[in-house]
Design a protein around this nucleic acid. Structure first.
Lengths: 336, 336
DNA sequence: AAGAGATTTGCACACGCGAGCAGATTTTTC
DNA sequence: GAAAAATCTGCTCGCGTGTGCAAATCTCTT
């Protein structure tokens, strides 16, 4: 066959068979040459790789997935595209996963708000694992949804889930909120208020509870909490205005502890627009998004250990790790 | 046993054969039942779908890809994860593509700065098309890189490329900059300066040139241009400071036209920090990222027609469209 | 009611590669 | 130098589905 000659032109459909023919070995020897720990003699491998290079061959991962029942594909599922921090997570995840040979399928579940459709779609592509990014996983889905059962591994990333069928890889939120509380206490703040995201029944509000518990232990004082309608700065502005309107004179909080940086930025905007006593109220965030460092905001916030979390994810994918992980992050002190 | 084994055990390996047996038909009839326009009698389809439902069957897209040589997979390739606008693009792209049956592989090429590695990785997954998001495609890659030749379609999305082997789907930047110019002219601005991104030799700076050409025609005046070191607001701050430092007294620009919103936000930050005469200088952006609407910035900017662009991408993927497209966007007037 | 036409169903083959084993080759051992 | 061990190579079978065609069934006309 001079199929090889054809392919050299088109550079399409170059298969292991072609390389095998060109190198004078069998197809399986070609496969071994491309395997890290393949049982193959150095000179044969050399010969094969040279032929592959010449023909422009690269193994077909699709066919390999079908044959081996391991796709080396991970579905990244998320529904919150308003938060710039998602971009940081996606950047890190894709870079680190691809560098280790894992492909990443980005799935948007903001339509349905129900993970089952996203999981079904992912499972049809035979992903080795589904990773919910910054998204809680509703327990009921596992019982009812078709897709959920078909996915081999289910990981909740950068968020807490107590679902027993799920693996959590997250920042240690409890520790984080303690550090923020200690920091505020040391700086002399006395009456914090918490600005949280939407108060959905199912969502366990880890950060709020952690902060309130710790502050109670620290000062004996309760922390009033207000829920924004959404994780976006417009909602935060409305919420902070509501907080300020509701406060009796002389009972203003002296610091607004926000569940993440987006809400914190909204809070800063609201306080600045309001002026007067409000302008003196401090704000803390969470995530350390790039804009948190802007002169206008200069937020004290908490940086999640994303790289470390990604590495734990690799451990989970390779089967080395099979339990929940909480990694400590870093307090970033900027403003008051 | 562990949780993973449980999941995998349940409904593993329900294939078309199983459904066929359960429904009393052949495997190919099952396939037809799942095809939109399959030649199959309604009652047979009904019977098959019922059996599939009962068994929890969903077609294996991986095997289908291998057999049909169409993966219905698209690689989304990008390298600029600093710009929140990427998140908007990703959200829209993934939602619209998945809704039409296209899977999206997110590839991060920020490491190499060279598209060839990303393209090779994508091609090994047999993607039907690679979409460079907001990223220019270096012509030389097509000639030298292995990956580039293996990808069936190459689309440059939300950015201009004059590469003949590439399809461009973009906002009509030329029109956009004309609208911005007209707007500024009508408002009485007389001496704009342009703040652009990095000045790489290969990059054709579409927006800059368009604005300068138009302004020249409008007023006969030249527009001084300054390049930031990167597409991030810190670089923009430095650049704007440099512009102000370099300006002779009385020759300050009255408006800074920025290549995108991130640079514009940096510009606003710099002007605000500077105070005095600088604080009166207006700023325009591009992209209309969510934060552009924040009270602190309140940017006049230009919204790209992302949904329309995604629909044109679908046309390209399905083969209905095979030429460059430039879609007009919308001027968003906010600040001065 | 028979035959033409339309519709519906079944089948051989292919897609590109991996797992696991058997045969071939080389290296080591006594 | 021959046998045992270690290493290397080739091969059968299967992964789950699409394509194109032939066979079977149904519908309608005369």
């Amino acid at each position: 066959m001079d199929r090889i000659a054809e392919n050299a032109d088109q550079s399409r459909g170059v298969t292991a068979d072609d390389v095998a023919a060109a190198a004078g070995v069998s197809r399986w020897t070609v496969a071994r040459a491309f395997k890290k720990r393949g049982a193959i003699s150095p000179k044969t491998r050399q010969k094969v790789l040279a032929a592959a290079e010449r023909l422009g061959y690269a193994p077909d991962l699709l066919a390999a997935s079908l044959a081996s029942d391991r796709s080396h594909l991970v579905a990244l599922i998320t529904n919150d595209f308003n938060n710039p921090h998602k971009l940081v997570l996606l950047e890190r995840l894709t870079r680190i996963l691809w560098s280790q040979g894992w492909g990443t399928l980005l799935v948007n579940m903001s339509e349905s708000e129900d993970a089952s459709a996203a999981l079904l779609a992912a499972s049809q592509r035979r992903v080795d694992a589904a990773v919910m990014i910054g998204t809680r996983f509703d327990d009921r889905v596992l019982d009812t949804a078709l897709g959920a059962r078909r996915v081999k591994k289910l990981v909740v990333f950068a968020r807490y889930s107590n679902n027993p069928n799920t693996l959590t890889i997250s920042c240690d939120d409890r520790l984080a909120m303690r550090e923020i509380g200690d920091h505020l206490f040391a700086r002399g703040y006395a009456s914090p208020a918490f600005i949280a995201g939407p108060d959905t029944q199912s969502a366990k509000l880890h950060r709020v509870d952690s902060f309130r518990d710790h502050w109670l232990g620290l000062t004996g004082g309760a922390v009033p909490t207000r829920h924004a309608a959404g994780y976006d700065f417009h909602s935060a502005i409305d919420t902070v205005n509501a907080v300020l309107d509701a406060a009796l004179p002389g009972t203003l909080p002296d610091v607004l502890v926000c569940e993440n940086d987006i809400l914190a930025i909204g809070a800063k905007e609201a306080l600045r627009a309001r002026g007067g006593a409000a302008a003196g109220i401090a704000v803390t965030g969470f995530d350390d998004i790039p804009l948190a460092a802007a002169p206008s905001y200069h937020l004290t916030t908490y940086r999640q250990p994303i790289t470390a979390m990604c590495e734990r994810l690799l451990d989970v994918l390779s089967g080395r790790l099979n339990e929940d992980v909480f990694v400590p992050g870093t307090l970033i002190v900027r403003g008051g």
